[in-house]
């Protein structure tokens, strides 16, 4: 009876102490807690918990789980550079490997690291037919982002247009392909020349009709004022010289602006298509892998 009386308080202390003090929580509990926080959108708190996990004592699967969650948090916070770095560090043996690779590659593509994304996408795991099609879809999307139409045409041969998660996006990607190849290549030199003939015409040619009209009116007004100064006060008058200088600046500026507006319009066009492609590349990733 005496030993029992002695050991009972010791046993009680052993049971209560770890629960109360929580001195060294296990990796599993901390990771589950961080995941719970991430699901609750408590990103700061989840990041805090993950940063305070001692990485030196972790096994490879634990390290994989840790970098996956850090990557996933960064992805949720739209820090795509960090997200891709973390996600692509997940090793092949991890259960998060497939998801991490696909999302990591997408983050690279979104972040304009298109060549790196292509290198990663070549080795994306595709254990079944759906993922195989998804891999082809992602590669095809990237090919469109890089405007490599021949590569896109060869990759789209793997589209089945039957999967619930991919068919709509595949059809849309084909439409983007047609839209991109139908783009009229406008020449900045021709835009400048048109604006030299009729101020603002180059901007209308570039696809900015309102800007063209807005550019035409001040140049026309200054031209008329210069002509009036010349006709009434002669070529040496201050009126003629003043308005003439202003007219020259506006006229030359309009020519330069028309040439630039071709590039601006082209960038807008490309950006619009890039956003649509990236959006459609993202939908099947979320539907198929974010479970």
């Amino acid at each position: 009876m005496t030993p029992f009386r002695f050991w009972l308080p010791v046993l009680l202390l052993c049971l209560v102490q770890p629960a109360y003090c929580q001195t060294s929580p296990s990796f599993g509990s901390e990771w589950s807690f961080a995941r719970y926080l991430a699901d609750k959108d408590a990103v700061d708190e989840a990041g805090f918990v993950l940063r305070h996990i001692d990485q030196k004592r972790l096994t490879t699967p634990q390290r994989d789980s840790l970098v996956y969650l850090r990557g996933w948090l960064a992805y949720g916070a739209k820090s795509l550079d960090s997200a891709s770095q973390y996600l692509l560090r997940v090793s092949e043996t991890s259960s998060f490997y497939v998801k991490s690779q696909y999302f990591g590659a997408y983050c690279l593509a979104f972040d304009h690291h298109r060549d790196s994304a292509r290198a990663v996408m070549q080795y994306l795991p595709a254990p079944d037919s759906t993922l195989s099609e998804l891999k082809a879809f992602q590669q095809a999307g990237l090919a469109l982002l890089q405007r490599q139409y021949t590569r896109y045409d060869s990759l789209r041969q793997q589209f089945n247009y039957t999967s619930y998660a991919l068919s709509a996006e595949e059809t849309r990607l084909d439409a983007y392909r047609r839209g991109l190849s139908a783009e009229k290549r406008r020449s900045p030199v021709l835009a400048g020349m048109l604006s030299a003939v009729v101020p603002g015409l180059g901007k209308i040619y570039a696809g900015k009709p309102k800007q063209g009209i807005a550019a035409f009116l001040p140049v026309l007004t200054l031209g008329l004022l210069t002509w009036e100064g010349y006709r009434k006060d002669g070529p040496t008058s201050l009126r003629f010289l003043g308005f003439g200088s202003l007219f020259t600046v506006f006229y030359a500026g309009n020519i330069w602006g028309s040439a630039v507006s071709v590039k601006v319009r082209r960038d807008e066009f490309n950006r619009g298509y890039d956003n649509k492609i990236l959006f459609d590349m993202h939908i099947p990733l979320r539907n198929l892998l974010n479970r």
């Binding site: 049971l15 209560v16 629960a19 109360y20 003090c21 929580q22």
Partner: peptide, 11 residues
């Protein structure tokens, strides 16, 4: 055991 579990939150 119950006391330990309850004291987790309180701690």
């Amino acid at each position: 055991f119950l006391c330990g579990i309850c004291s987790i939150g309180k701690g």
